[in-house]
Design a protein around this nucleic acid. Structure first.
Lengths: 339, 339
DNA sequence: AACGTTCAATTGAACGTTAAAGCATATTAA
DNA sequence: TTAATATGCTTTAACGTTCAATTGAACGTT
C-alpha cells in the first residue's frame, strides 16, 4: 500500500505538501497540486485512517451501544432501523460506526460503556439501554463525569448535562387510547410488563391521561416472566380472560410483541378480534401488518431517531452548539383492523 | 487520559517495561510487575487502541459489509442475527465490528468494499450481497486480486481462493417440498422473484430435485416488481388464482415475505390455508409464528452464520490454516400450521 | 540598496505504542 | 580466574500522518 511518502517522492515534493493538497489546508500552486493528484491516482494512494486518527487525536468513529437482555440480540428490527439511520448519517460525514453489543442481562456497568471511549475507539456514542438499565442515574452520572460524549435513546433525564432522542411515547399512548375510546370502548386495559422501563412508562401515562380525560378507570395488566415476550403477554391475557367477569373490551399493549401474545390468547379462547376484544400494539414492527387481523399500533420513528442522534453527536463533536439537547420525535398512530 | 509514559514514570520503570508487563512478552520480575500494575490501576490506564493499531499495523477490527436495495436497511432481522453472532465472536477476541452499509441499489463496485481495507479500518470482512450482486464474478475477482480478507455469506463460488458460509438452501428447499409431498400435495408451485439470486436459486433447485424424485412437474411462479416484497408475492399469486384452472394445492415460497404475500392473496379470495392451498416460506423470520395460520418454513442459522464467518476470519488473520474454506450450515424445517 | 511582507514550500517534532537491539548484572562453565 | 551465557531492564527507532516552526524566494516600499 502506498503511503504519503511514496506520493511525495513520485510527485517530487515534500510529504507535507501532499498533506496540504489533500486536506486543502494551505495554498499550493495549481501546477504542483496537479502533480500530486496525478501521483495519488497513479499509486492508488488512500490515506491511512489509523495514522490520521492517531495524529489528530480523534477516532472519527461513533459507537452504537446497546444493552438488551433479549437473546436475539440486534435482530430486533428497531435496532436495525436506528442503526441504518445512524450509519447513513455517519457515512455522510466520513465517520465509522462501531457496534458495541452488551450481551449481559445484568446491570450495565459504566465501564462497559466507557471502555470504547477510553481506548479511543470512538468519539461519541448512541446509547440504548433496555428496561431498568435505561435511566439508571448512577450509571448516567458516571458517564457524565467521565466526559463521555453520548446521546441517550428513550431517556431524557439528564437535563442540560446530556443529550437525548426520544419517541413521543406519551402522545402515542394517548393517541391509541383516544382511538379506542372513539371506537366506543370504555373498559380498556393496558398490557404492560411488571419490569419497569421509562419509555414504556410514558406510554402508560399517555394511556392514563386519555382515560382520565374521559372519566374512565385505568386498568393495568402486569406481565411478569417471561418479560416483554409474546409468551408472557399470552399468559397474562389468558389468565385474565379466565378469571374476569368484567373483562375489558379492548387491550392496549405496551409493545407489539405483547399485543401479539394477547391476540394469540384471545383467539385461543374462541373470541374474535376486534369484535369481542380489540387489541392495539406499540412499535409498528414489520409483522404488525402481517398478523391476522393486522395490528393497529403506533409507529416509532426509529430511522430518524438514529439519524437525529448521529446529527447531534456530530454537531457536538465539531464544536457547535447543539440545540435543543432533547429531541422528541413524533409517533404515528397506524390504524389497521385489530382495533 | 493516562498514557504508558505516565504509568512508566509512576512505577519508576521504562515505557517498554510497562509494555512488556501488559503484553507478557518478556520476563519481568514479579516485584516490578506488581509496581507497574499498581500504577496502571491508580492511573486507570487504558491502552490507546489507535496507537496499537498504528504500531502493530493491524486494525483489530472486522467489517460487516451489506448491500441490499431494500430501504429498510439493516432492519431485516436476518442481518441483526448475523451481526449479533459476529459481534459476540469478535468481542471475545477483542476485535471491533464496523458496519458498512451500502445503501445503493446499483451494482456494487469493488471500491465500495475495498475502501475500508485500503484505509486500514478493518482487517477482514463478512460480506453479504443481495440479489444479482451476490456472486458477481468480476467483483469477487477484484476483491481477491486486492488480497482482501473476507468471508462471503451465501455465495461459495470462489473455490480455494475464498471463504464462504452458506445455509443449506438446497436441502432446505428439498425438505420443505418433501414435506408438502408427504402431506399429499402433487401440484406444488414455487414462488420466486424473477430477479436472480444464487442463494434462492439453490432453494429452487432443492424444490425441483424433490419434485423430480417423485416424478412431479415443477411449476415456477415468477414475481416481478416489486421484487422480494410481500406486495409482489400477493400480486403474483392473485393473478395466478384468477387465471388458473389447474391451480396448485400448495405454494412453496422462496422467502417468508413472499409467503406472507401469497397468504394475503389467498385469503383475500376467500380460500382457506392450508385446506384449499397450503403455503410454506423460507427464512423463519420473527413474524413466521405470528401470522395466521403460523407459517411452516425453513429456519436459517443466521446467528451461527455470523459467528462461524467471524471465526474463519479470525483464524485466517491469526495465520492459521482455516479448513474447510466453505461451510454449509444446516437449515431446519419448522412445521407450523400453514402446511 | 536595505528592509519588511507575503507566498509557497520544507523541515522537525510529535501522537502512543511495540520490535529489536543494547547494556548492565548475575550465573554458569571451563 | 576468565570467558560464555542467561537474565532483566533500557534505549533507539519506527508505524503514517499532521501541527508548528522555518526557510527561501519574490515583491513592494522607503
Amino acid at each position: 500500500m502506498a503511503t504519503m511518502r511514496d506520493v511525495a517522492e513520485t510527485a517530487g515534493v515534500s510529504i507535507q505538501t501532499v498533506s496540504n493538497v489533500l486536506n486543502g489546508k494551505a495554498f499550493v500552486r495549481p501546477e504542483i497540486q496537479a502533480r500530486v493528484m496525478e501521483a495519488v491516482v497513479r499509486l492508488n494512494y488512500r490515506p491511512n485512517r489509523v495514522a490520521q486518527r492517531m495524529r489528530r487525536g480523534q477516532a472519527q468513529a461513533l459507537g452504537f451501544i446497546v444493552s438488551d437482555p433479549n437473546p436475539r440480540g440486534l435482530a430486533d428490527p428497531f435496532y436495525g432501523e436506528v442503526l441504518t439511520g445512524l450509519a447513513e448519517m455517519a457515512r455522510a460525514r466520513d465517520y465509522d460506526v462501531l457496534i458495541e453489543w452488551l450481551p449481559s442481562d445484568q446491570p450495565v456497568r459504566a465501564d462497559d460503556i466507557l471502555s470504547p471511549f477510553q481506548t479511543r475507539r470512538i468519539d461519541g456514542a448512541v446509547i440504548f439501554l433496555h428496561g431498568e438499565n435505561a435511566c439508571n442515574p448512577h450509571l448516567l452520572n458516571e458517564l457524565i463525569e467521565a466526559h463521555a460524549v453520548f446521546v441517550m435513546l428513550e431517556c431524557d433525564s439528564l437535563g442540560d448535562r446530556g443529550y437525548s432522542v426520544c419517541a413521543a411515547n406519551f402522545e402515542g399512548g394517548r393517541a391509541v387510547t383516544q382511538h379506542l375510546i372513539a371506537r366506543g370502548h370504555r373498559r380498556i386495559a393496558f398490557l404492560d410488563s411488571t419490569q419497569r422501563w421509562p419509555a414504556v412508562d410514558e406510554r402508560r401515562r399517555g394511556y392514563e391521561s386519555a382515560m382520565r380525560a374521559y372519566g374512565l378507570d385505568a386498568y393495568i395488566m402486569g406481565v411478569s416472566s417471561p418479560d416483554w415476550t409474546h409468551e408472557g403477554g399470552a399468559l397474562a391475557v389468558g389468565r385474565m380472560l379466565e378469571a374476569s367477569d368484567a373483562r375489558p373490551t379492548a387491550i392496549a399493549a405496551a409493545t407489539d410483541l405483547l399485543a401479539v401474545g394477547a391476540m394469540q390468547a384471545i383467539r385461543a379462547r374462541g373470541l374474535r378480534i376486534p369484535d369481542d376484544i380489540a387489541v392495539t400494539g406499540f412499535d409498528d414492527f414489520d409483522f404488525a401488518s402481517f398478523v391476522e387481523p393486522a395490528l393497529t399500533t403506533v409507529r416509532l420513528p426509529a430511522h430518524e431517531m438514529g439519524s437525529r442522534a448521529a446529527e447531534m453527536l456530530l454537531g457536538h463533536l465539531s464544536g457547535g452548539e447543539v440545540q435543543p439537547r432533547h429531541v422528541v420525535l413524533p409517533t404515528e398512530l397506524v390504524v389497521r383492523r385489530s382495533a
